[in-house]
Every structure is written in structure tokens, then in C-alpha cells.
Design a protein around this nucleic acid. Structure first.
Lengths: 105, 105
DNA sequence: TCTATATTTCGATAATTCTAGAAATATAGT
DNA sequence: ACTATATTTCTAGAATTATCGAAATATAGA
């Protein structure tokens, strides 16, 4: 992961509303959560919610699958693992140097 | 760590310039790096750099120690570890639930 | 096709952030 | 006190982001 990508992911998560959305999706597990369910939980305007979800989708932290009129959102664990991997490798220890930051699969 | 604190830390790191500042400080190790050295490395206006450093200091990710006319910046590993701990505990696995997210020391 | 539900897009405003030049401040040497 | 170096604060403009109501779109059932 390149540093600008990492910054983009961090920025996406660096908003209280978006972090709460993401955490709710994590807690929902593999079943995911419909946009409407998120809206009930977070109690923000649908348009505002849609705006924030899109920010998470654009960087790949969240994916969406349609089920009839409902859109189910899923947290993308793999992308989060890559981000955490980057932080641990590049930003946590003194030994951090320019190396490939790949996920330890 | 509370979710709003985590969001604040993520927001601080969620800017390419600030993430580069932070990474440079990590790479500098325990000796830290003077503001002026950061300015040479990143080649941005001093006032802009100061602005970004402050954003990192405010959330505790960076600390500063004065050495005569020079200000040495240090990455605060502990705060980063807490943040990563939060992400791993709350945002990485399906088992994430409402628990205390303390650093595993 | 008409209706209902779910969600997004549009449009507009308020608020925040980024950027950087100029001036101010801090520290120390002469 | 004067000078030099290092850094911050002030100020301001441009750009981006957050918010939300209203309208538009997507899907499916009657």
C-alpha cells in the first residue's frame, strides 16, 4: 500500500459518522446491514448517510450488494487489514523503513 | 479509546502531508526530527508545515521538545499503538463488540 | 401502469480545511 | 541592545466537506 492510499483510507475513517458506519458494519458481520438499518441506527438524514457511505465505498472499505430495493452494505475486512498492516509496518516502530507493505495474508 | 477519539486520530493521519510528517518522525527514531529538517524533506511552506504539525500534536500523535531555537518533534508510539489496538479490536473482525479497547501494553 | 419502498442525486448553505506570505515571537550568540 | 536562526501566529483566499430537503431513480408488487 502506498502512502497516499493509506492517507485516503485514513481520511475516510477519520470522521465520527463514517467510523460509526464502518463499525456498525463490522458488528453486523457477514450478513451486512441495509442502508435503511444504518439510517435507523445512526439517525441522520438519508442523503447525508448516502454521502458518507459513498466515501467509504470509493476507497474500498465498504462494498454494496443490492437485494431488490434494498442495498446491503458490507465492511471489506481485507482492505482494513491492509491498512492496519501499513500502519504497523510503516508507522509503529523505529525499524519502519521503506519496504513493501503487503498483507501477511 | 472512544470512537470519537479514534476518529480524531484517524482524521489527523488522514492527510497525505501529515501522514508523511508522521512517517518521517517514525523513521527518525528516538532522536526525533527538527521542524526545519521536516521542512527540508517535505518542501512545504513553514507556516503550512507548522499548521499540520499542530494537528498531530493536538491529538497526541506527536510531541515536541525545544532545543534552543530548534523544536524537535517525536512520534508518540504509544498513541499510535492505542489507535491500532482500537482498529484491530473494533474494526477488523466479526467478533468486534462493545468491549474496552485497552492497549495490550 | 400505478403505487410503494429504498436509496441516491441535486442544489444550496454553512462550516472547515488547506495553503502560504507577512509579521510576530522565542532563543541565544555578539 | 542588536543580529541571526527557528518557528509560530495572523490573515486571507481557494478548495473541500458536511448537512439536509426536495426531487429523481431503482426495484418490485398489485
Amino acid at each position: 500500500m502506498k502512502i497516499d492510499d493509506a492517507a485516503a483510507h485514513l481520511e475516510a475513517l477519520g470522521n465520527p459518522t463514517r467510523l460509526k458506519i464502518y463499525r456498525a458494519l463490522i458488528r453486523a458481520g457477514g450478513a451486512g446491514l441495509a442502508v435503511g438499518r444504518l439510517q435507523e441506527k445512526l439517525k441522520i438524514a438519508p442523503s447525508t448517510l448516502s454521502h458518507h457511505i459513498k466515501a467509504l465505498v470509493v476507497v474500498g472499505l465498504v462494498t454494496q450488494v443490492r437485494d431488490a430495493t434494498t442495498l446491503i452494505c458490507h465492511a471489506n475486512y481485507e482492505v482494513m487489514r491492509e491498512l492496519v498492516g501499513f500502519l504497523v509496518a510503516e508507522c509503529c516502530t523505529e525499524s519502519a523503513e521503506t519496504k513493501d507493505t503487503k498483507t501477511a495474508a
